[in-house]
Design a protein around this nucleic acid. Structure first.
Lengths: 418, 418
DNA sequence: AAATTATTGTCAAGTTAATTAACTTAAGCG
DNA sequence: CGCTTAAGTTAATTAACTTGACAATAATTT
């Protein structure tokens, strides 16, 4: 389904996937670009014409334009009988973009080409508590390192996308009221990024970008109603509904971590009681393990002495067959499953993609979730929902940032060239 | 934000509000119509031009067209300094449409003019268990009665919108797997309606239409992230997100009634345990009252002897000051509040509109909901959400059906006239 | 009261992006 | 080799928009 859009500003939503500034005239060019970008199969001019309900002649003209500006290139394709269609794809060599994912404890930067393929990558341990200026500094360091090391011409970088672990006011590109990010509130991040680097920049919530990344390049291709659940230190989710990212009225949609599971449960970091995060986050898993060890239960985790047990330790132990670790993870999955079931009942998504560190263990974590969803939702709903792990693993969000950056880059280029 | 859209079929999403068949050419005409339809203030040509980022001349041409076809008319408007703008509005006398709401126990039909104003209305007690054919028969009876009684020319009716209490496959216009509607599964309702009456028809879930009705004519005007919660015999909700109705992958989004509140609570009609409906539906309220009376608690409800107590009785009693009835409703509100809090956390809507019979009691029901939402959501979220009763009362859904019918009528007319 | 300023709406000429219908290209097949 | 099928191109035409000048109408200033 293809939506064209124009508005005063002008915000354009093309095939909900891209939101772009556009004067409203060259709209079909933008739609064609997105069609080529996000197609899972090979696309020819005729197919584009059919999908957009335009004449072949019109598409020929548009594609000519795109070829000339270098955004798109032709490839070979094979079909039975009749003239072979010429497949089209985004020209990966036309330029590059950065995708940045800021987490509760890390900073990850991906350099990708226009085809969305990874060119170089760097991840460091980082605490966002240092504030936005320091973070910008770090991003500057990493991006220039990546440019240098990857034989990239600095002028070939066209945009930067960024994700942060908190609500984002997408209109102004600010972080708003972030629980994890004191000192970031109201900081005009998009503007500062643009000023500092000279590239157009976008800002989104990290879970939101996870959904987008998995939709564009991961497990959720073609699935226009997708929920991405990120189980890291905390638990968050990104919603892609009706083919569009949904951020809510204030940019804080998807806050599944602070849904009430047990009315009078233990106190959560957010101040409420019995939140999901108390039972099913990386933090919770680590705490459970710690508790169990102190109670003297039999586990390899007891060997960790000097430092405190981390969720990662529990995952590793589970992978190596430690029963206690496995049980802790299974239980976390069960609790998460209850929340996911509620979410699935409410949103009836076509797919739920589990991301974040904890999910990488796979079925041990997925199985209880699937079970709970099946048990606790209407059959119509549970029958239609696929629940899987993120295909992009720990890169979901950063790749989502790449998608946003590409949207900016491609569509801006299109306007400039015109 | 204005989206234009075209696709093979061609489905067009205009200012997400209307989904219309359109050849993709006269698109801006459709956008202008919707702009005029849904504007809360008076609109002039210049304002339209500014909002759509088109030239004044272009709008003049488009409006000329709309004036000539009679869809739009001019009115007076007053502004300071400069030539007075000529305000535009949909010409209410251009035609009429029907909005039909089928509930678990009633059938409501509204006849409205092109301005969405109520011309005539009829509601009867009705059990959808009789099956779709019988229901069509009843609709035929009522519509012809309304046409006759309201001095309407049958040829002035241009479309019919309908809502049903179950999931709808909007693509094919069928009811799908409805828990409350055995015998309706897979019935091609839209097609049958069109065949039978000769009007184009639309089909949606009733809660969805409640959201749309309140958004267009009710409490939620201008609010593009709105949740409508219908508390009737059961509990359902309609989601209007990013300015669009969201139905989910299989049309069953919004099933808040079967969210798990208590892990091992009483068995629900759906087979699971501890669902919201067990605690906060009309059915639940009636049951509680019955229970209390049998336990000999002091209440005016004890006076009801021969028939069983209904939710309506409890509402009436509460309105007249009966303490027990008030408490039952307050408690139902509290339970509902927990579910609403989860929903608000997850979707961060700008507004929650409470509809359905139970909500008509007002603050007694709203207050516990507001309290629970405030207590159980992140401050960013709860601060931004307004929680109110439906402005259209028991007409929300039927008016939503009118909105859908008008969308069909106006935009089809536009294509034909062209 | 006349002149000034602001704003809306219209007109005519020019531009752009689409359509239509004929045509070319490129493959498979009997 | 010619026939069939499908993809892609070309040229003439049409519809929708832009631009810039201008008329209409009101409030404000002189």
């Amino acid at each position: 389904m293809y939506n064209k859009g124009t508005q005063a500003g002008v915000t354009l939503i093309v095939n909900p996937r891209s939101t772009v500034n556009c004067n409203g005239k060259s709209l079909n060019r933008h739609i064609v670009v997105d069609l080529i970008r996000f197609s899972t199969e090979q696309v020819s001019r005729v197919q584009i014409a059919r999908q957009m309900d335009l004449s072949r002649a019109a598409i020929t003209a548009i594609v000519d334009d795109l070829l000339q500006s270098g955004i798109v290139r032709e490839t070979e394709a094979h079909y039975p009988s009749g003239r072979r269609p010429i497949s089209l794809e985004i020209n990966p060599n036309r330029g590059r973009v950065f995708g940045v994912d800021l987490g509760a404890s890390h900073l990850q930067v991906i350099l990708a080409d226009f085809g969305g393929r990874l060119i170089a990558e760097k991840e460091i341990a980082y605490k966002p508590e240092n504030g936005p200026e320091d973070c910008l500094e770090k991003i500057a360091e990493i991006t220039s390192t990546l440019i240098a090391e990857s034989d990239t011409n600095a002028s070939d970088v066209y945009a930067l996308g960024m994700g942060v672990p908190g609500p984002v006011t997408s209109l102004t590109g600010q972080v708003s009221n972030p629980p994890i990010l004191p000192g970031w509130d109201g900081f005009p991040l998009v503007q500062e990024l643009t000023n500092r680097f000279g590239w157009p920049a976008t800002l989104n919530n990290d879970a939101e970008l996870g959904a987008l990344g998995e939709w564009a390049f991961g497990a959720g291709r073609q699935e226009n109603n997708l929920v991405y659940i990120k189980v890291g230190t905390g638990v968050g989710s990104g919603l892609l509904l009706n083919g569009q990212l949904y951020g809510g009225a204030a940019g804080s949609a998807g806050e599944i971590g602070h849904i009430t599971l047990v009315e009078n449960g233990p106190v959560c970091v957010c101040g409420n009681r019995g939140c999901l995060e108390v039972y099913a986050s990386g933090r919770a898993i680590a705490q459970r393990a710690d508790q169990a060890v102190r109670q003297g239960m039999s586990t390899v985790l007891s060997d960790i002495k000097n430092t405190s047990i981390s969720a990662k330790d529990v995952l590793t132990a589970a992978r190596f067959g430690d029963r206690l670790a496995q049980q802790i993870i299974y239980e976390a999955g069960t609790h998460l499953g209850v929340a996911v079931a509620n979410l699935v009942n409410l949103l009836n998504p076509g797919m739920v993609v589990m991301g974040g560190g904890v999910s990488q263990i796979g079925d041990l974590f997925l199985e209880p979730i699937r079970t709970m969803v099946e048990r606790r939702t209407l059959r119509v709903v549970s029958k239609g929902v696929r629940i899987t792990s993120a295909l992009l693993g720990r890169r979901s969000s950063a790749m989502g940032a790449v998608v946003q950056a590409l949207t900016l880059a491609l569509h801006n280029l299109l306007e400039v060239v015109k």
